[in-house]
Amino acid sequence: MKKGESAITFVFSLIFLAIVITIFYALFLLSSVNKANFSINQVSLSDVNINLINYLRTPLNTTTVYDLMINSYYNNDYRELETLSENIFNRVYDNERCPLWNIKGEINNEKFFEFESKFDARKYTLSQNPRNFLRIFTDDYLATRSSSFDIVFPDNKKAKITLLEGCVE
C-alpha cells in the first residue's frame, strides 16, 4: 500500500504543479502584454483621430461631410451620409487587415446614426478589454481602437462622433 501511496503523491503533485504553472503563466503573460499595449493603444488612438477628423472635413462640393451630417440630422434622412461613410471607410479599412469599422453619432447620449462594416464576429476574438483572458489562446485577435470627437452642432448642441476600428494584430 505504501509504494502506491508514494506514486499517487507524485502524480497529484504533478497535477497541482501543472495547474499552478498554467495560472501564473496566464497572469504573467497578461500583465506584461497589457502594460506595454496600454500605452501603445493610448498613443495609437491618435491615428484613429486623424481618420475621424478627416472624415468630418471631407469636401463635398462646397460643403463637407460635417455639413451633410447636420442636414441629415435635421432632415432625419441619413441615406446619403450612410453611402458616403461606407465609401470612405471601406476604402480606408481593407477587409483583410481591418475587417471592422463602426461610426456613430450621439446627441445627449441618444444615437442618431450608426454605420458599420459587414463584419463576421464569429471569425475573430474581439479584445475590447485589454485584460481579455482569451487573448493568450489566439494568435489572430482583433485589436479594437476607438476615438471620439465632441463636435459643435447648430443651436449650440454637442454631438459625440465615435469611430471604432478593428484590425488584426
Binding site: Y25, F28, S32, K35, A36, V43, D47
Partner: peptide
C-alpha cells in the same frame, strides 16, 4: 515565467514607431 514581465516592459519599439 519570471522573465516574461521583464522582457515586455523594455519593449518600446512599437510605441516609438507609433
Amino acid at each position: 515565467l519570471i522573465t516574461l514581465p521583464v522582457k515586455q516592459s523594455f519593449e518600446i519599439d512599437k510605441l516609438q514607431e507609433t
